[in-house]
């Protein structure tokens, strides 16, 4: 399912003395099946954009096309439920939204709100729990008895069980330990590659954006600063630092190596693995 934003504008507390602009003139395209990363600082408007993707916020100007629905300023949209089923959002620290007595009931909450029968929902819960790498017996436990990392996985399972076409992820690994972080990120890429899920990742981590995304949107002060493929974006590091973003460690390392070498490598490497292989190849060529 494609999502297109056209000149979207939003202001907080519109019409009061506390009014302040959130995003202005935001346009970009999330093509079906792609992995899109939205990067930018806190306050750059990332999370405001994110909340437009399933109409938790409505644009004050401009319009958003979500599949066959068009959300425009000032127009009532009746099929919000349909949109929200198809665009699932994993919010930052999603474990804060858990509330049911058992993990199973909590995971079923989403699907059943969208009209899935209880038995089907239970099957989905089982499937989702396996997907996020938790043992089945967790289903009958209280979510509040689990560790922080496990709660995070349960919350993610709750969104996956809705079987969305588009999965929007807001810093899904914040606060997790390194190995857990990798597991979860790999699971999302797996879903995107094998099930054709569209992924939108909102993140501070340049490393994650470089590693996983097909396309990157940089937000700065409420507007789109740049759009491009990771190799495009990270080739021009000056443009990144001009909006206060870090250069991914791999790219930074490649640059200081290139300085010694006196010429650029064949391509901008996006992961340490890629860079190590590239340098290895170069050594083979030289000797």
């Amino acid at each position: 399912m494609d999502i297109k934003l056209r000149e979207v504008e939003y202001r907080y507390a519109a019409g009061t003395p506390f009014e302040r602009p959130a995003i202005t003139d935001v346009s970009f395209h999330i093509p079906s099946g792609q992995y899109v990363a939205i990067i930018g600082h806190t306050g750059s408007g990332k999370s405001t954009v994110l909340q437009h993707l399933n109409v938790l916020l409505k644009p004050l100007k401009g319009e958003i096309e979500i599949g066959s629905h068009t959300i425009a300023a000032g127009r009532k949209e009746k099929n919000l439920k349909e949109i929200r089923r198809r665009v699932g959002i994993v919010f930052q620290f999603p474990e804060h939204q858990l509330f049911e007595e058992t993990v199973e009931k909590d995971i079923c909450f989403g699907p059943m709100n969208f009209g899935v029968a209880e038995n089907d929902a239970k099957n989905r819960a089982l499937e989702a729990v396996r997907l996020v790498g938790l043992p089945e017996d967790v289903l009958k436990k209280s979510p509040f008895d689990l560790s922080g990392g496990q709660m995070r996985r349960v919350a993610i399972a709750g969104v996956l069980a809705m079987k969305p076409d588009v999965l929007v992820l807001d810093e899904p690994t914040a606060g997790l330990d390194p190995s857990g972080r990798q597991d979860i990120m790999n699971m999302f890429t797996g879903l995107q590659k094998t099930n054709g899920l569209t992924c939108v990742l909102v993140t501070h981590s340049m490393e994650d954006a470089a590693r996983y995304a097909d396309k990157i949107v940089i937000m700065y002060k409420g507007s789109v600063h740049r759009i491009g493929t990771p190799r495009d974006i990270f080739r021009d590091t000056d443009s990144l630092t001009s909006v206060g973003l870090n250069v991914p460690e791999t790219v930074r390392f490649q640059q200081s190596f290139e300085k010694r070498l006196g010429r650029p490598l064949d391509k901008v490497c996006l992961t340490p693995e890629e860079l190590a292989a590239e340098i290895g190849k170069l050594r083979g060529e030289i000797s």
Partner: peptide, 16 residues
């Protein structure tokens, strides 16, 4: 703030 966040998260899961 927190109420707003949780409300949005549950609305995203179809709560009305």
């Amino acid at each position: 703030d927190e109420t707003d966040k949780i409300m949005k998260a549950q609305r995203a899961r179809g709560a009305d």
